[in-house]
């Protein structure tokens, strides 16, 4: 993101790069965004009055899309490793792979939403539909933005604007991409697996309460 530069890059007081610090501050802030959405979903868990809820979640299919997103993170670090060694073609290849895997993930999500609508679950159906679809949709929007970002980097690399000396651009995009991945790790674990498990959250809470007392 040399091209995103603010003030010319000189020595900073902390020794930390301005844009990298900005990205980490943003990710800290984004924790609060996703945290609020996931909390809303958990608060309304089991409160839906009508329509399908957790039982509708398709774990096998989502396991595959989760794996796809995990592998996109691998492709992302490989892209960074490539550009840090000055291998622009390698970077381009891995960045494209990351973006394509991200697009496949989005495809899975569209398929999931379509299936849910088919089974009678839309954001308007019940509380589960509202919280689940807005939360995962917000995550999908993050992935989509990331895909745009990655293709922009590929595009700019052809104009010679992504180089070994500007590998920070790729690193920062990578931070964003991995963050989107870890948010999905949490959603897959907490919302899909535990959520659809039939394990009442209360059981877990009793366990915690038992340990504390």
């Amino acid at each position: 993101m040399q091209y995103l530069a603010g003030v010319p890059e000189h020595r900073t007081s902390t020794g930390l790069n301005n844009r990298k610090l900005l990205m980490w501050a943003f990710l800290g802030s984004d924790v609060m965004f996703f945290g609020s959405l996931i909390t809303t979903h958990l608060i309304y868990r089991g409160q839906s009055l009508t329509g399908p809820a957790e039982e509708i979640l398709n774990i096998p299919v989502t396991s595959i899309s989760t794996f796809v997103l995990l592998m996109s993170s691998l492709a992302m670090v490989l892209a960074l490793a490539a550009i840090q060694r000055g291998n622009i073609r390698g970077m381009r290849l891995w960045l494209s792979a990351t973006a394509v895997l991200g697009m496949i993930f989005i495809g899975f999500q569209m398929f999931e939403f379509y299936e849910f609508a088919h089974l009678g679950l839309t954001p308007r159906t019940n509380l589960f539909g509202s919280t689940f679809l807005v939360m995962t949709g917000f995550h999908g929007a993050h992935v989509t933005f990331g895909v745009f970002w990655l293709w922009s980097l590929v595009f700019l690399s052809f104009k010679g604007k992504v180089r070994q000396d500007t590998s920070l651009d790729v690193e920062i995009a990578g931070l964003y991409w991995h963050f989107v991945d870890i948010v999905w790790i949490v959603i897959f674990g907490v919302v899909y697996l535990i959520g659809a498990y039939g394990v009442e959250a209360s059981d877990a809470a009793h366990a915690v309460a038992g340990m504390l007392s």
Binding site: M32, S36, T40, L49, R124, V134
Partner: peptide, 29 residues
């Protein structure tokens, strides 16, 4: 501010797209 943004987003979805975050009839709190 992210917490406010999310609260406003939920209300926005309720008002524009008919979601149920604050719809008492759908069991909202």
């Amino acid at each position: 501010f992210p917490v406010l943004t999310i609260a406003l987003t939920l209300l926005m979805f309720d008002r524009f797209f008919g979601t149920n975050f604050f719809a008492m009839a759908a069991g909202a709190d």
